[in-house]
Nucleic acid binder design. Structure first.
Length: 469
RNA sequence: GGUCCCAUCGUCUAGUGGCCUAGGACGCUGGCCUCUCACGCCGGAAACACGGGUUCGAACCCCGUUGGGAUCACCA
C-alpha cells in the first residue's frame, strides 16, 4: 500500500481565476482523481496589501464552474501566521536563519550595481555573521543557504535539473513586520498538509532548489515536483490581458461550456495519441505526466471555439435549453423570471445547436423563435421579399391555413404542391419564407423553423411579409 | 546580464533509432451533400531551427549555435 497522493492548488487572491491558474488547478485535480488522491485548495494570501476576499470568492466561483471540486480547504495562510513564525524561530535558534538589517534601498542599490557589472543579483551576505542586533532597525529574517554543492530537482516533467548552491540566494522568510513570505509559507504548508506532489507552473522551477533547502533544514522529505510549461499568447509572450480574455468566468460570459474549456486546457500540453475530444471520465482515466509536454504552448482561441461547438452539438437539447435561459435574459429576448415552455424551447434549441458555436450565438438565434416579431435584414428583404415571391407567399399562406398539423412531413407536402403548381424550385419559395420567418437568409431547415414557430406565428409573419412588399 | 527551461506544419500535438514519402486536430483551401447557413463527408497546401558528431541507419541520442521563455522582490 503506497501513501495516498495529496496535491494542492494554491492561488494567490490578487486577481480572478485566470486561464493559466485554471490549467494548474486542472492538472492537480486530474492527478488527484486519477490516483484516488486528495485535492486541497489553499489560498496564499500572505500579501495582505494585494489580496482580497472578493478574489477568493471569484477563484472559488471559477473552480466550481469548471467542476474542479476539492477535498480539503479552502485554507487561508493568513489564518496560520503563528505556525510560520514557529518554524522560522526554530531556524533562527538552529542558526539556519539570521536577522538582516540591510534596508530595501541599500539592497536595491547593490542589485543595480551587480546588474551593471554583469554579475548575479543575489544578496551579498553582509548580515550573515553579524554578532548583535543593529539598534533602531526592524530586521528581516533570512534563510542561510548552503554555499557549496548542488541541489537537484527531480521533476516529473522536466527530468533532473541541477542547480549550483552558490547561485542560491539567502531568501527572506520573515519580513521586517514579522509576516512570513511565500517561500517559507509554501514549504511549511506543504509539509504540514502532507503534500506528496507539487504541481505548478514552471515559473516556479527556479524557486524549487531554495525550497528544497528549506525542506532539508526542517528535516522533512522533499515532495515530488511537476512543473507545467507556461501558456503563451499569440506573440509567444506569457498570456496576459493584452491577449484578450484571461479570466475563466469571462469564458462563461462569452458562452463557453466548462467541459469545452477543460478539454481545451488539458490538451494544451497534454495529449493522448490522436484523441481530441474527451469526456471527463476519460480525462481522469488517461491522465499521466508522461504525456505532458515540456514546451510552452500558445493559446489558440479558434480551436477552443471549435471544441465548444462540438460540446454544444453533443449536449442534450434539454440541458442546452436550461443553460441558455440566463443568456436569453441577458440579451433581452425574455424577461428575468419569465416562465418558459421548456419542452418547446428544447425543440427550438435542437434546430440550432449545430449552428451555434457559443451559448451567446444560440441565444441570439433563438430570438426569431421567441420574439413576437422579426426585424428584417435590409439586404435580405430587398432580395427575397419581391413582387415575384408575393404570389408564392400568398399561395403558401392559403395552403398552410388548411393544414391541421404543423409537422415536418405535412409542411413538406404543402411546400411541394405550392412549388409544383407555380412551376418553381423549392429554393424560390424557401428563401422568401425564411426571410419572412427569421428576418435573414440563414436559418435551420425551413420546415423545422415553421414547425417550431407554429401555425399562428407563421401565418402572421407571412401576412406581414406580403403586406410589406 | 547570471541562472534555469524549451525547440516537429501558422497553432495544439503524435512520434521514445529502422514502421516517417513525418500522422491527427484547429485554422486556411478545393469539392460533395443541400431550401439558406451550419453539421457531416472526400481532397489539398503546410513542419522535424541550424551545424557538427555517435550509428549500418537519426525528428528521435550527444555537443555547439541560433531563437524563444522563465526567474533573479520585505509578490506569489
Amino acid at each position: 500500500m503506497t501513501d495516498k497522493i495529496r496535491v494542492r492548488f494554491a492561488p494567490s487572491p490578487t486577481g480572478h481565476l485566470h486561464i493559466g491558474g485554471a490549467r494548474t488547478a486542472l492538472f492537480n485535480w486530474l492527478y488527484a482523481r486519477h490516483n484516488n488522491g486528495t485535492f486541497i485548495l489553499r489560498i496564499e494570501d500572505t500579501d495582505t496589501t494585494r489580496s482580497t476576499d472578493e478574489y477568493i470568492e471569484a477563484i472559488i466561483e471559477g473552480m466550481k464552474w469548471l467542476g474542479l471540486d476539492w477535498d480539503e480547504g479552502p485554507f487561508r495562510q493568513t489564518d496560520r501566521f503563528d505556525v510560520y513564525r514557529n518554524y522560522a524561530d526554530q531556524l533562527i535558534k538552529e542558526g539556519r536563519a539570521y536577522y538582516c538589517y540591510c534596508s530595501p534601498e541599500e539592497l536595491e542599490a547593490r542589485r543595480k550595481e551587480s546588474m551593471a557589472q554583469g554579475k548575479s543579483l543575489k544578496y551579498n551576505g553582509k548580515c550573515r555573521d553579524l554578532k548583535g542586533p543593529v539598534p533602531g532597525i526592524k530586521p528581516v529574517v533570512r534563510f542561510r543557504m548552503p554555499v557549496a554543492g548542488q541541489t537537484i530537482v527531480d521533476d516529473l516533467i522536466k527530468g533532473m535539473v541541477t542547480f549550483e548552491n552558490e547561485q542560491l540566494d539567502d531568501l527572506i522568510i520573515l519580513r521586517s513586520d514579522g509576516t512570513p513570505t511565500y517561500n517559507l509559507t509554501v514549504v511549511v504548508d506543504d509539509v504540514d498538509m502532507k503534500i506528496t506532489h507539487v504541481i505548478r507552473g514552471d515559473d516556479h522551477l527556479n524557486n524549487t532548489p531554495k525550497q528544497i533547502q528549506l525542506y532539508n533544514a526542517f528535516g522533512y522529505p522533499v515532495p515530488k515536483f511537476a512543473h507545467l510549461p507556461m501558456i503563451l499568447g499569440s506573440d509567444k509572450a506569457r498570456l496576459s490581458k493584452r491577449h484578450g480574455a484571461t479570466s475563466v468566468m469571462a469564458y462563461y460570459d462569452m458562452g463557453y461550456l466548462p467541459e469545452a474549456l477543460v478539454n481545451y486546457l488539458v490538451r494544451l500540453g497534454w495529449s493522448y495519441g490522436d484523441q481530441e475530444v474527451f469526456t471527463r471520465d476519460e480525462l481522469v482515466k488517461y491522465f499521466s505526466f508522461e504525456n505532458v509536454g515540456k514546451a510552452a504552448a500558445v493559446f489558440n482561441p479558434e480551436k477552443l471555439l471549435w471544441l465548444n461547438s462540438q460540446y454544444i452539438i453533443n449536449s442534450s437539447t434539454d440541458k442546452l435549453a436550461e443553460l441558455v435561459i440566463p443568456f436569453l435574459e441577458k440579451n433581452g429576448v425574455i424577461e428575468k423570471g419569465q416562465g418558459m415552455d421548456m419542452a418547446w424551447l428544447s425543440k427550438a434549441v435542437g434546430t440550432l445547436k449545430e449552428r451555434s458555436k457559443t451559448m451567446v450565438e444560440l441565444a441570439n438565434s433563438l430570438r426569431y423563435y421567441i420574439a413576437e416579431d422579426v426585424e428584417y435584414n435590409e439586404k435580405a428583404k430587398e432580395k427575397f421579399l419581391t413582387e415575384k415571391s408575393r404570389d408564392l407567399l400568398a399561395a403558401l399562406k392559403e395552403a398552410l391555413t388548411a393544414v391541421p398539423e404543423f409537422s415536418h412531413h405535412e409542411l413538406e407536402q404543402v411546400f411541394k404542391s405550392v412549388v409544383e403548381t407555380h412551376g418553381v424550385k423549392l429554393k424560390d419559395l424557401a428563401q422568401p419564407v425564411r426571410v419572412a420567418m427569421t428576418g435573414g437568409t440563414e436559418s435551420p431547415g425551413i420546415f423545422e423553423v415553421l414547425e417550431v414557430l407554429g401555425k399562428e406565428k407563421t401565418v402572421t409573419r407571412l401576412e406581414r411579409a406580403i403586406k410589406g412588399i
